[in-house]
Amino acid sequence: MECTIIAETSGNSIHPITAQLVGAASSLGAVPTVVVPGGIGAEDAASIDGVSKVVSVVGDCFSTFDGGAWASAISPQCSGVVIAGATSIGREVASRVAAKKGIPIIQDATGLASGITITRPIYSGKAVETSTVSGDCVITLRANAFDAAGSGGSASVNVVDQSADVSIAVKEAISKASERLDVSEADIIISGGRGIGQKENFSHLDEVADLIGAAVGASRAVVDEWGMPHSMQVGQTGKTVTPSLYIAVGISGAIQHLAGMRSSKYIVAINKDPDAPIFGVADYGIVATWEEAVPALKSALAAL
């Protein structure tokens, strides 16, 4: 099966998802060509196991992100089944490549089997779709859903000089706003309750939140007693949230709190009381003091 992978880059190197894309292609029996937009990290790509060759596409157009231009430059190098990461850049470039070639695209696959049979979550994970594609197509894969291929390969790197017209001009860079996400819009929330002792200790949760782009929430008890902002309150009279991941630290799990977060996709509870009701709704419960568990959480997340 002919297969092309569009590499994902991150800064000056290849993004780890690229090895996962290769791993997924290998599982289908393919020996893929890896196309590296802008040539960043092409040597890294060549060292991934199972790659037949690397095509490093270099050109002026890669200095700014314009999905249309990128797709124009790399599309001639893509053939057969095209696989990219379901990242924001990957999705956009892949959509353009599919439209250019007039072939279907399936985004955000979490499973692949030969055929090609593709599994992907739909309705934000409330259902799963299995479909079969015949002929050429474009597929984007969810990060961390596939095993990464190992390293040690030594594929050849062909450099192709190919640019395209860029139609997007960057006018102004705006540095990252320091304000934190609101709990009602965050995909990950870390919340604290009375168990963390005092208001000042929320700074530890802030640090964890910064690592993973999470919002910081709070139980009603601490909002009322410690004067935390009401906008942080999760629960019956606060916000009802449904993030992918909700981490409850030092929250016992009163029914009013559970009402606001029990529909979260995954719940992690950290509490020193093994009988705390929060463990009843937790997917992963950790019986530990927050003083020990939060620093451990921080270092584990930083190591990802």
Binding site: T130, S134, D283, G285, I286, V287, A288, E292, A296
Partner: peptide
């Protein structure tokens, strides 16, 4: 070129897992 074979409910989440001690954080 795409045929939808089926829709299905998401896989049941495994029952909650409980771990003892802060050393389990990296596992989680």
């Amino acid at each position: 070129g795409v045929s939808i074979d089926s829709h299905s409910p998401p896989a049941e989440k495994p029952p909650g897992q409980k771990f003892e001690g802060a050393e389990s954080v990296s596992t989680v």
